[in-house]
Design a binder for these strands. Structure first.
Lengths: 356, 356
DNA sequence: GGCGGCATCCTAAACGATTTAGAGCAGGCG
DNA sequence: CGCCTGCTCTAAATCGTTTAGGATGCCGCC
C-alpha cells in the first residue's frame, strides 16, 4: 500500500464516561425508571413538570436510548432487513434509495445484506440479519432461489415482502412491475415502427424477471403475428458486457434483426457501445429498446428508448407493504404489479430502407 | 395507482409458534442455559457429546439467536453503522459495496443511514443509528458538516471512521484518496498534451473533497506555471447536469479553454453530453478528464480519461480501520490517503491545431 | 369523617442472552 | 479412607428497557 499514513494523538472522547443509562438518569433525578421511561416517551400519565425535568436531564447528560434493550422487552426493533443480490446495478441502487427513504420516513432503520446473486450467501446473510429480529424483511431474491431456500424466513414469523423479483409459490407479499406487459410494450413499439425481425438481448432464466421478460418478448411477437426464432436471443445476465457482445452476435447472423429489446438498461448501454464500435448508429442503423429507465438512460447519447418500470414507485410500495404487514401479520397476501410505461427517445426508428 | 393487485390466502407460517429461545432449548435438553450458551459458541469446556446434542437440537428446532439480547450483555453488537449522504451517485454505490463486502466478511452487519447531503437529517439519522449501539460508525459527512455536528458522535464513545470526505479537526480515523495530488495529475496530463487554458468543471466547497480538488487544480496550474483564472471554473455539485451546463458555459467564454478537469466522473459524463450537443467531439475538439473512475467511465463513448481514486481499495481500508479501532479504541488516529492514478483513455488529446 | 376518584409515581417482573463463581462427581494417589 | 485434581455443568447476577399492577396523597363530596 503506497498510502500516506499519518499517526497522531488518540481519538479525543469528550466523555467516554460510561454511557449514561435510563437508570442513572432516574437515580440522579430521584425518580423511578418507570417514570423516566414514560416521560421520555411522552406518556400522558407523567406530570408536565416531571417530564420537563426528565427531558432536560436527558439532554444535558447526553442520554441516548438503548434500542436493543427496549426491543428485548417490546419485541419490536424498528429495523427492516433489506436483502438485495446486487447494489452496484443502478436499478437496484435506485430501489435501495427508494426503500431507505420511505422506511426511514416511517421511523424504521435499514439493516443491509447483499447476496451477490449467490443463494448460499443469501441464506447466510438473511440468517444473520434475522438474529437482529427485524420487524420485516424486504428481499429481492438471488437468482435460483427456491421456495425451500425461503422456508426458514417464513418460519421465522418475520414479515417478508419480495420486491422486483419473486419466488413463485412463496406466499409472500410482492411489489414489482409487470414484466410481461413491459417487454411486450417494447416489442409492439418496434413492430409499429415497421420492424419485422426483432431480437432480444439479455436473458436470465434463473430469475423471475428473466422468465417474465422473455415471456413478454414472445407475447409481443405473437401479438404481431411474428414468428419466434431462438437464434434472435442473445443470452446473458443484465450486464453491459452482455449487451455489447449480444448485439454483435445478432448482427453477425445470416439474417440479422433490425432491432432488439433488452433485458435491462445495462444491456442496452452495452449494446449501444457495441453498435458504435461496429460503426453503426443506434436509431438509424439499428433500433434498441432498454428496460427499467434508470436515470442514466435519458442521458446517453443517443438518449435511450426504454420501458419505465417505475422502480422508485414500487420501492415505496414495497416499503408500504412491509409496514402494513408489520401492523397486521394476518392480512391477506398482496401482490402489486405496476404497469410499465414506454418511454420513446432516440434509439428507435423505422428500419433502414432498402434493407427491409 | 393503476396497479394489478391480487389478494389471497394469508402468509403461511410453517410454525409461527413462539420463537424458540435458548432457555427453551435448555429446558428441553435438561441442561442449563449456561451450558447451552457455551455449547452454541463452541466453548471448550463443554463435553463433545453435549455440544453435539445441543447443536442438533438447535438445528431441528430452528433456533436463531437473539443478537439484541446477547448484545445487551456483551456490549457488542457486531453492527457497523454506515452514514452516507447519497447512494445514487455511482462512486458512493461502489464505496458502499466495498464497505459492505469487507464488513460482512468480518462478521459485521451494516446498518444504513442516508443523509441526502443535509446536515440536519444527518444528525437525526446518526442519532437513530446510535440507538442501536453499533460497534463503529463509518461516515462520509454531508457537505457543510462541522466538528460541532460530530461532537455527539465523538461523545458516544463509538468508534468513528470517516471515508472519502473528512471534517477537518474532527480527530477521527480517515480513509480516502489524495485529491490534491489527484486533480493535479489530471492537469499535468493536459499540460503535457499541450493545453494552456484548462478549466475545471464542478466545484463544491462545502465538502472537503471539493476544497481539495480545487486546490489540486490550482496546484496543477501552478506547477506548470499557468495562471489561475476564476472564470475557467464552472461551479456546481457533482451531478451530470453540472457537467453539461458547465462545459457549455466554458465554451461560451470569450477565450474558451481547450480542456477541463472535472470534480467527478458524473460531471465528466455530463460534459461529454454537452459537447456532443454542441456538435463537438471529446478528445478531438475538447479534452476532458474525469475523476474517480467509476466502472461506467471505461464504457462511455469515447471512453473517459479519468483519475482512478481507488474507491474500492479505500473502502476496504476504511472497513479495516473501523475493525482495528473496535479492537483497540485507544490506538492513535490513523489517516490513510491513497495516491490516485491517472487512467488515460480517449477523451484527452493535444489541443486542436490552429486554435491554440 | 369516610370514601371514591384522580393524578402521579413506584415496585418488581419480565425480555433472552452471557458469564463468573462454584458445585458434583469420578478417579488417582498417598 | 481422605484429599486433591479435572472435567462438566449449574445457579444466579447482569445488561437497559418496558409495563402491569399497585401505592400514595390530595381533593371533593355526600
Amino acid at each position: 500500500m503506497d498510502a500516506g499514513t499519518e499517526g497522531s494523538e488518540p481519538q479525543g472522547g469528550v466523555s467516554s464516561v460510561g454511557r449514561v443509562t435510563l437508570q442513572q438518569l432516574a437515580q440522579e433525578l430521584g425518580l423511578s425508571t418507570a417514570t423516566v421511561s414514560l416521560a421520555l416517551r411522552d406518556s400522558p400519565v407523567v406530570a408536565d413538570a416531571t417530564r420537563h425535568k426528565v427531558l432536560e436531564a436527558a439532554r444535558s447528560r447526553g442520554y441516548v436510548a438503548n434500542r436493543g434493550a427496549a426491543s428485548l422487552r417490546t419485541a419490536r426493533t424498528n429495523i427492516v432487513g433489506i436483502g438485495l443480490h446486487d447494489i452496484i446495478n443502478p436499478s437496484f441502487t435506485e430501489l435501495l434509495a427508494a426503500l431507505e427513504d420511505s422506511l426511514s420516513a416511517a421511523g424504521k432503520t435499514v439493516l443491509l445484506g447483499v447476496s451477490q446473486e449467490d443463494v448460499a450467501r443469501q441464506t447466510r446473510t438473511l440468517g444473520t440479519l434475522a438474529e437482529y429480529r427485524p420487524d420485516a424483511f424486504i428481499v429481492s431474491p438471488a437468482a435460483g432461489t427456491t421456495v425451500n431456500d425461503l422456508r426458514a424466513l417464513a418460519a421465522s414469523g418475520i414479515a417478508v415482502v419480495q420486491v422486483t423479483r419473486q419466488v413463485e409459490g412463496s406466499g409472500f407479499d410482492f411489489a414489482g412491475s409487470d414484466d410481461v406487459a413491459g417487454v411486450a410494450l417494447g416489442v409492439a413499439h418496434l413492430v409499429e415502427l415497421g420492424h419485422r425481425r426483432i431480437g432480444m438481448i439479455g436473458s436470465f432464466p434463473a430469475a423471475s424477471t428473466g422468465r417474465s421478460r422473455l415471456a413478454g418478448y414472445k407475447a409481443g411477437l405473437a401479438a404481431a403475428g411474428l414468428p419466434f426464432d431462438p437464434a434472435l436471443i442473445a443470452e446473458g445476465p443484465g450486464l453491459r458486457e452482455t449487451g455489447r457482445a449480444g448485439v454483435l452476435q445478432l448482427l453477425d447472423l445470416p439474417q440479422p434483426p433490425t432491432a432488439a429489446v433488452c433485458f435491462n438498461d445495462l444491456n442496452a448501454f452495452g449494446a449501444l457501445m457495441g453498435l458504435q464500435s461496429a460503426g453503426l448508429t443506434a436509431g438509424r442503423d439499428f433500433s434498441l429498446v432498454g428496460y427499467d429507465d434508470v436515470s442514466e438512460a435519458a442521458l446517453w447519447h443517443p438518449p435511450l428508448t426504454t420501458v419505465f418500470t417505475r422502480i422508485p414507485e414500487y420501492g415505496v410500495i414495497a416499503a408500504g407493504l412491509a409496514l402494513k404487514r408489520i401492523a397486521d401479520p394476518t392480512r391477506p397476501v398482496e401482490r402489486v404489479m405496476l404497469t410499465p410505461r414506454l418511454v420513446v427517445r432516440d434509439t428507435t426508428a423505422p428500419p433502414p430502407t432498402g434493407r427491409r
